[in-house]
Nucleic acid binder design. Structure first.
Length: 185
DNA sequence: GGAACGATTGAT
DNA sequence: TCAATCGTTCCT
C-alpha cells in the first residue's frame, strides 16, 4: 500500500527548515503488515556548506544518496557498531539531509521492546542509533524512498508541537549552529 | 597499505 | 569518564 495522499514536497527545501518542520511527523516501518514507529521528537539538519556534515567534502561512495533526490533514506554506520538514519532533503546535487534523532513510539511496541532488551520504555528510541535499532534499520535501507510501502512518513496528529532550536550533539565542527530541533517542554 | 577518527551508546 | 569496534576517508 502506498500513501498517495501525503504531500512530501516540503522535503525539497532547505534542510534546516525541513528539520524543524519534521518535528511531530510520524515515521513508521511496515514489517509483515505491522507498523512500527511513532512521532518524531528530535532532528538535526546537515548540509554541504557545513563542516559537520558528511557531505562537506563532496560526494563519496558513502554519501552518494545525500546528493540524490529528496525523500530517500540516508543510513550510515558509525563507531563500528551503530546505524543512524536521515531523510534526504533539497534538490538533486545539494548533499543535504535531516538526521532523525528520536521518536516516541506508538505502534509496534512489542517488536521495539524485543529489539531493545532490558531498556525502559523511555529509552527505547531516544537516540539516533537507538531509533535505528528499534526499527531494525541498517545500511540495506539506505536509498529507500519514503512512502514506498515500507517506510512511511505521515503528518502530525492534530496541531504541530512547539519546537525549540539548540546546538547539535556529538559534533566537533560548526558546533554553534542552532540546527537541532526538539519538542518544547 | 596504514592510520586516525567518528552525526553513539551503555556501563563505571 | 571511558571503552567498544570497524567502515570510511585521507595520507603515504
Amino acid at each position: 500500500m502506498n500513501e498517495p495522499s501525503v504531500d512530501l514536497s516540503f522535503l525539497e527545501t532547505d534542510s534546516v527548515k525541513v528539520a524543524k518542520q519534521l518535528i511531530g511527523w510520524r515515521l513508521y516501518r511496515k514489517e509483515a503488515d505491522q507498523l512500527i514507529g511513532g512521532a518524531i521528537t528530535e532532528t538535526e539538519a546537515y548540509k554541504q556548506t557545513d563542516a559537520a556534515s558528511h557531505s562537506y567534502r563532496g560526494e563519496t561512495p558513502r554519501t552518494k544518496v545525500m546528493f540524490g533526490p529528496p525523500g530517500r533514506l540516508y543510513v550510515y554506520f558509525t563507531y563500528g557498531m551503530h546505524h543512524c538514519m536521515n531523510i534526504v532533503t533539497g534538490q538533486i546535487g545539494e548533499g543535504s539531509a535531516v538526521l532523525l534523532r528520536a521518536i516516541v513510539p506508538d505502534k509496534g511496541l512489542g517488536v521495539i521492546r524485543s529489539r531493545r532488551p532490558g531498556q525502559p520504555d523511555t529509552k527505547l528510541t531516544d537516540g539516533p542509533a537507538k531509533l535505528c535499532q528499534a526499527l531494525g534499520v541498517t545500511l540495506d535501507d539506505s536509498g529507500k524512498l519514503l512512502n514506498n510501502g515500507e517506510f512511511i512518513l505521515l503528518p502530525p496528529m492534530g496541531k504541530q508541537p512547539r519546537v525549540t532550536a539548540t546546538k547539535r550533539i556529538g559534533i566537533t565542527k560548526d558546533i554553534d549552529r542552532l540546527w537541532r530541533f526538539v519538542v518544547s517542554d
